[in-house]
Design a protein around this nucleic acid. Structure first.
Length: 569
DNA sequence: GCCGTTTTCGGCCCGACTGTTTTCAGTCG
């Protein structure tokens, strides 16, 4: 069992205990264990083999026993018991923003409601508002958020689906007779929410490969064999489809399975005048690589991330296809956290990890004072931290560190540090962590105010959305983009896979408006620095090139532009 | 459930916003 799978079990236990009215601190203990596992640099199975589980913070007798049971049997008796006691639907309700444990328990005890469908019906029939502590506004919020939940239902963030697909494809490649196996579908195109993780395999004897995959331990339910494909859901619920064809059909199948449907349909249309069977070249030999399909049509290769039928074929025809950003173009990360606020590693550890990734620079941008839950820095602690950064720079770590802050845009629109403090930082990021639900005018004005401040370089996670969990703030994005273009404020693509904020569409709008983009991980530990990849994928989906992204610049270049920015009007 | 003891119990990141109230509880980050 992977760390991720174990966190899912522990998180479910926490939720069910909470719904069952257990001691909140017991619940928190499980949640803490989930947090620790999320940040663990190695498989927990390996730690278990070394007998080191109990060394993990927050891992006592019970949680160690639970993890051991999962690792050895794949099951969990305490979870099984809880599932019998607490209706599964109540846990689904926890995913509805605005509904917490107390409200769910009230609804369950008064109305006997234990499924989302019943909840929705009761809200429509205006029965929720009759309950103590629930009024008309809450009832409407519930209805709106059920709708959001349904739209996401059964989909998983790219951050979950991509690692899974990578692992599956690596396993399939080891099977006898498999010549080639590749990720296709939503995952290959980098869609932020994945409906189905698709794999395409080219093999000698497709049937034999399909049989083996049918027995894959992750093929937990809904397994269906249909023609050359097998579909199943992992026990987490992620839909998977593996298609196995002969080697000669591989490239065409891979292309079709990658989609999008709108893109492949148009390509097929363009090719229909061409009497060659789709898996062959003019010469009669079989396709060896995907670019040959485009080449047959006289087009350059079109990267999967922009195969959405939104101008890519036209651009390919007239030679204006952009040369998309690559992960190796990124020279530094300008938004990370350390133990000074709510991060898990020291500045030095983060710096060394960033150096190991080949970066030239890293900005240390911990939270500001008002974000108490994240241990935000007072002005005094901020100055102390900057001293440490200057010390580290003198030690010549091979990577240059920028002093910085992620300063809160407070609910009334003020910034959480005075201008004279901001003026001293190399990098100032402004972002919102409170008052998410303010009305459009108010919250837009807040962000505009921050952008007008001459010391603010970057606005981080500009829309505030959390995929599948939280809607964007009610901001007027056009106004924000407009002002960013005028003030030269950089807008962030936050690479954290639950955020991806800005999204691909907004990134493309920024490109059109010549607004500088910066891709940051917002990493709270050394592992999460690796999530830069998700930001790069989002940027590629937004058609961004090296020129559009500021942290592709060298240390000297970025120092120069950051230095010049302090004078913006 | 975990931790760290002035060891076997008592405490466990805090503060703001929202919607429900009519002085506060629930939710969220």
């Amino acid at each position: 069992m992977t760390n991720l799978e174990i966190t899912w079990v522990l998180a479910e236990i926490a939720d069910l205990l909470e719904l069952g009215g257990e001691n909140p601190f017991k619940v928190k203990a499980y949640r803490q264990a989930v947090r620790v596992l999320h940040h663990l640099p190695e498989p927990v199975a390996v730690m278990a083999q070394r007998g080191e589980l109990a060394k993990l913070p927050g891992f006592g007798k019970t949680i160690v026993a639970t993890v051991k049971e999962l690792l050895s049997t794949g099951t969990c008796t305490s979870l099984a018991r809880l599932r019998e006691e607490v209706p599964a639907g109540l846990r689904e309700m926890l995913a509805i923003p605005g509904l917490g444990v107390r409200s769910i328990r009230t609804i369950y005890s008064h109305l006997g409601i234990s499924t989302l469908a019943e909840l929705e019906q009761a809200a429509r029939e205006k029965r929720l508002r009759t309950l103590p502590g629930i009024g008309t506004k809450s009832e409407l919020t519930v209805l709106r958020n059920i709708e959001m939940f349904r739209q996401q239902h059964g989909r998983f963030p790219l951050g979950v689906a991509l690692p899974f697909a990578n692992q599956l494809v690596a396993e399939v490649r080891t099977l006898p007779g498999v010549e080639r196996a590749e990720i296709a579908g939503d995952v290959r195109r980098g869609e932020e929410m994945v409906e189905t993780a698709r794999i395409v395999v080219g093999a000698d004897e497709p049937d034999r490969v399909l049989e083996v995959i049918a027995g894959h331990p992750q093929a937990a339910r809904d397994t269906v064999r249909e023609g050359p494909s097998i579909s199943f859901r992992t026990w987490m619920g992620l839909a998977v489809k593996v298609t196995v064809v002969s080697r000669k059909d591989f490239i065409w199948e891979w292309f079709l399975a990658t989609g999008s449907r709108a893109h492949t349909n148009r390509v097929a249309e363009m090719a229909s005048g061409n009497r060659i069977p789709p898996n062959r070249l003019n010469s009669g030999s079989f396709l060896q690589e995907e670019w040959e399909i485009y080449s047959l049509l006289g087009l350059p290769y079109i990267p999967p991330e922009i195969r959405e039928n939104c101008g890519e074929l036209e651009a390919a025809k007239d030679g204006s296809l952009p040369e998309l950003l690559l992960p190796e173009n990124i020279k530094g990360d300008l938004h990370i956290h350390t133990m000074w606020s709510d991060g898990l590693n020291t500045i030095e550890e983060m710096a060394k990890a960033a150096y190991a990734m080949g970066y030239e620079y890293l900005a240390i941008t911990d939270h500001s004072h008002s974000l108490a839950i994240a241990n935000g820095l007072s002005v005094e602690r901020l100055q102390e931290q900057w001293e440490e950064i200057r010390d580290l720079n003198r030690q010549n770590l091979g990577i240059r560190l920028f002093t910085g802050v992620e300063v809160d845009i407070l609910a009334d629109g003020r910034l959480d540090y005075p201008d004279e403090v901001l003026a001293q930082a190399d990098v100032v990021i402004a972002s919102i962590h409170s008052g998410f639900r303010q009305e459009a005018e108010k919250i837009t004005t807040r962000i505009e105010g921050a952008m007008k401040n001459p010391h603010v370089d970057i606005v981080a996670h500009p829309t505030g959305r959390m995929l599948g969990r939280r809607r964007p703030y009610d901001i007027q994005i056009e106004r924000v983009l407009d002002l960013a273009a005028r003030t030269g404020t950089w807008l962030e693509i936050n690479a954290f896979p639950d955020r991806l904020d800005l999204c691909d569409k907004h990134a493309r709008q920024c490109k059109d408006m010549e607004i500088p983009i910066v891709i940051n991980t917002d990493a709270h530990d050394v592992n999460r620095l690796q999530e830069m990849l998700y930001g790069v994928i989002t940027a590629r989906r937004g058609w961004l090139t090296v020129d559009d992204v500021m942290n592709t610049r060298s240390f000297d270049q970025i120092t120069r532009v950051l230095g010049a920015k302090g004078k913006k009007k």
